[in-house]
Nucleic acid binder design. Structure first.
Length: 642
DNA sequence: ATTTGAATAC
């Protein structure tokens, strides 16, 4: 009997199949009698001929078996071909009585890759039964697109359904545990990892240590790393980038060097992470070394790596190199543009930032995002182009397919007004904006009040600011500067008292300078440097010399209750002056000096550097926490506003 | 099916 049917189908397939009404029997017969037609589809797909495969499928009507669908879907996934995928999906619904779990899972993967998470989720929800792979595929879809809470919810749902996670599930779900709310679950998953003996699995371990690093728990991350029975590039890169992202740049570099000695084979992600650490240190010589190493290694083109090179050169003070890399790129992402724009902005080059932004829109390949606007706004602010900045802000607000401005953008506008001396307008703008002002926004306005000597608004702002972040020493210093500039010495004293009362913890100031590939670091009143006597003597010498040109120490920068002579001594011990003096000692006259400081530079050190640049004919490039100061012939590129 | 990476106002 079966043989007869088979023979009939073989000669008149369409008629026979359509005469069988039960879809289940139909499919059974189809599958048991037809020689697999998947090899043809498989061949076409492995040649990347998706269109031809679809055509074939259409001609053959019902006669595609599961293996064939599998080949076609796999190719759709690799080509991110959503339209073809949708047609295959429709075909499957039409012809398959009960698509097996693995076919449905392929559909989930396809929709996830094509950013159609809703469609993927629908496939999952319609599955009569799910296995660990289908759960994991959907969790991964959510994780990769940043839907952390959806990923975590689904993971919990999976556990409740009684499906046990495997190493793939754990590695995936841990990437969604980096938020503060997710971190609690992350710890619980860690115990699950231990219980199920996946602790030494390399992917699970990498993911776990990355989670700890991103949560700022670097010691725990290191613990996981050290406990791994074997290491690969990914786990090594994860721990290096963990240090770098927390600003522990030296540690990141030390570890990188050690792992390299121990045989780690770096890839482009490793180099990108190392460049992040070097950007933090502004270690230009080392950055150049990594760059030439990367060139010698003849790696294929990686946008990510180029982006981090742009950022490294700009943070090391060499914008020309950044732009050279930017211009040479065959392809750019929004991050490439943002990195370049942030570079111009940090160097105070508003005009260049606006020009580049214009170019970006003209090219119309990459859509500006929220960071792009932030960078351009800040560029306008630092470049003294407040009207252009306001225009761009309103352009952003009125964009049709754009996004709502975030609080940071409002902060940018406050900064624009403040910098331009329009302190009242800045204040009114804050009152009207749809957000509760943050410390950053008040801080920006307080800075404006200091520069433009608006004691009235300044006092109000300072009051707010000291409520929100009483522990930030910088705020007290600016308020003290403000009172001093108005000659209100009683209030200067009051600020000092207030600061003592609140037990402010000051992040220790630290400056450094790179000479012959070595970083020389100085702390405030540093007595540890081997050439300290020479350095202190040099600061005193410089001080005396520039006083003749009109330099007056800004004593209101010192918030200790000591006499003026003592205050001047404290000022002379500021780390940036030590680094500057050391630079003058160690380099021939006329060469530029490049200094980096971890905090915002104080008014007195800024004055000091300006006078020095004029009297000694030295160009000073100083990078502080916020921006670059290019000081030439007595004037600074920041226009005395920072 | 899974892990690492680049930019963010003051």
């Amino acid at each position: 009997m079966i043989w007869k049917i088979t023979s009939l189908i073989f000669h008149r397939p369409k008629q026979v199949l359509s005469s069988i009404s039960n879809p289940f029997s139909r499919q059974r017969i189809l599958l048991s009698t037809f020689p697999a037609n998947s090899p043809d589809l498989k061949t076409l797909c492995s040649n990347g001929q998706l269109k031809e495969a679809l055509l074939e499928m259409g001609i053959q009507g019902l006669e595609v078996e599961f293996q064939g669908y599998d080949s076609v879907l796999t190719e759709c996934i690799s080509q991110t071909a959503i339209r073809e995928g949708q047609r295959v999906h429709a075909h499957i619904i039409k012809t398959c009585y009960e698509p097996p779990v693995y076919l449905r899972t392929r559909l989930i993967v396809l929709y996830n890759k094509c950013r159609c998470l809703g469609d993927a989720r629908r496939v999952l929800d319609e599955m009569p039964e799910r296995n660990v792979v289908s759960w994991t595929a959907m969790i991964s879809g959510y994780s990769q697109r940043g839907y952390a809470s959806e990923a975590l919810h689904l993971f919990v749902e999976m556990l409740m359904s009684g499906t046990a996670p495997n190493e793939f599930t754990l590695a995936t779900v841990l990437t969604s545990c980096t938020s503060s709310s997710g971190f609690q679950l992350g710890r619980q998953i860690h115990s699950l990892v231990i219980k199920t003996n996946f602790e030494s699995h390399i992917f699970v371990g990498s993911s776990l240590l990355d989670m700890y690093a991103k949560a700022g728990k670097i010691c725990e991350a290191r613990g996981v790393f050290d406990g791994l029975p074997e290491r690969d590039v990914v786990s090594c890169t994860a721990i290096i980038s963990g240090y770098a992202q927390l600003g522990l740049d030296e540690e990141a570099l030390d570890l990188f060097r050690r792992l390299q000695r121990e045989g780690m084979r770096s890839n482009y992600v490793t180099y990108a992470s190392v460049l992040t650490a070097l950007s933090g240190l502004a270690a230009l010589d080392h950055g150049r070394q990594v760059h030439s190493h990367v060139l010698r290694a003849k790696l294929p083109f990686y946008v990510v790596l180029q982006n981090s090179l742009i950022d490294m050169y700009s943070k090391c003070g060499s914008l020309t190199h950044s732009r050279r890399i930017f211009d040479s790129m065959p392809e750019r992402t929004v991050i490439s543009w943002n990195a370049m724009l942030v570079g111009y902005s940090k160097h105070g080059l508003g005009r260049e930032a606006v020009e580049l932004f214009k170019l970006m829109k003209e090219e119309n390949k990459v859509k500006p995002d929220s960071v792009t606007f932030l960078a351009v706004l800040s560029g306008c602010s630092h470049g003294g182009m407040e009207d252009r900045g306001l225009e761009i802000f309103y352009e952003m607000v009125n964009q049709k397919d754009g996004f709502e401005p975030e609080i940071e953008h409002y902060g940018g506008v406050v900064d624009l007004f403040g910098r331009a001396g329009r302190v009242e307008e800045a204040f009114e703008f804050i009152k009207k904006m749809p957000f509760e002002p943050t410390a950053a926004i008040w801080g920006s306005l307080l800075g404006a009040c200091r520069v433009h000597q608006n004691v009235h608004i300044g006092e109000f702002v300072a009051h707010r600011l000291l409520e929100i972040e009483p522990e930030n020493a910088g705020n007290y210093v600016i308020l003290s500067n403000l009172y001093a500039s108005a000659g209100r010495w009683d209030d200067v004293r009051m600020v000092r008292e207030l600061m003592k009362e609140k037990a402010v913890i000051k992040e220790p100031g630290r400056s450094w300078i790179e000479l012959d590939q070595t970083l020389h670091t100085f702390h405030a009143s540093d007595r540890s440097h081997p050439r300290k006597e020479e350095v202190f003597a040099k600061v005193r010498e410089l001080s005396i010399k520039i006083k003749e040109a009109g330099y007056v120490p800004e004593l209101s920068c010192v918030l200790y209750d000591v006499d003026d002579e003592q205050k001047e001594k404290i000022l002379q011990g500021h780390s940036e002056k030590l680094a500057l003096a050391f630079g003058l000692i160690c380099t021939p006259g006329g060469t530029p000096v490049r200094i980096i400081k971890n905090l915002r530079i104080c008014v007195d050190c800024h004055n000091f550097a300006k006078f020095l640049s004029r009297v000694y004919g030295r160009e000073v490039s100083l990078r502080d926490k916020n921006r670059f100061h290019h000081i030439v012939g007595g004037t600074c590129s920041c226009g005395d506003y920072w």
